[in-house]
């Protein structure tokens, strides 16, 4: 794919850049680097790690996510929709008098209402995770960075994006080098 195109451009001194990436060996080093990047004014910096690093997203300036609220709404929709479905069926659309029992026999509607609330919440959780994260997205510029496959194994990466207002090609490179990473990697555009 564009992997080969990117390699050819490497020879040119001013190949277009998606960003600079710095590689670290530990989660703490990445966390420290992420804080410094945020302090240095990089607002669109990204960090990649092979497991969830507590506080990393916050260090990059991420505020709290909307996932819990979305899950709550999903569960609520499941519960309300589920109860409405049963009420509508039993009271409005198909009322049957069974020994004079009330049509809106709500205690008997509780199990299905509950199950549908769980289903609504679970679907909302998965959708909130995927849509919020812009996934599925099979291709992404960072995959073009050399050895980025280690991000799902044992290495930690900090990426300064070229579309960051604070990004300036040489300055960003100097900044990353000052963090003493294992190495700095180019992410071709």
């Amino acid at each position: 794919m564009s992997r080969h195109a990117g390699m050819q451009q490497d020879a040119k001194p001013r190949a277009p850049l998606w960003g600079w990436m710095a590689e670290f060996g530990t989660a703490d080093a990445l966390l420290d680097a992420a804080r410094k990047a945020h302090d240095a004014g990089y607002r669109r910096a990204e960090a990649y790690s092979p497991f969830h690093v507590e506080g990393l997203a916050e260090a990059l300036g991420s505020r709290r996510t909307h996932v819990p609220a979305i899950v709550f709404l999903g569960g609520l929709a499941g519960a309300v929709g589920g109860f409405f479905m049963q009420w509508y069926a039993a009271v409005v659309d198909y009322p049957i008098n069974v020994g004079g029992r009330p049509l809106n026999s709500w205690p008997m509607f509780v199990p299905v209402t509950f199950e549908l609330a769980v289903l609504g919440g679970a679907l909302a959780a998965v959708l909130a995770l995927l849509i919020g994260s812009g996934l599925p997205r099979i291709t992404h510029p960072v995959f073009r960075a050399k050895d980025f496959d280690l991000a799902t194994r044992n290495r930690f990466f900090l990426c300064l994006r070229s579309d960051d207002p604070a990004f300036e090609r040489e300055g960003a490179a100097r900044f990353l080098d000052s963090l003493e990473p294992m190495r700095r990697i180019e992410v071709p555009a």
Partner: peptide, 8 residues
């Protein structure tokens, strides 16, 4: 890709 906000 293991981005910090995705992990969050």
């Amino acid at each position: 890709r293991g981005e910090a906000r995705h992990w969050q």
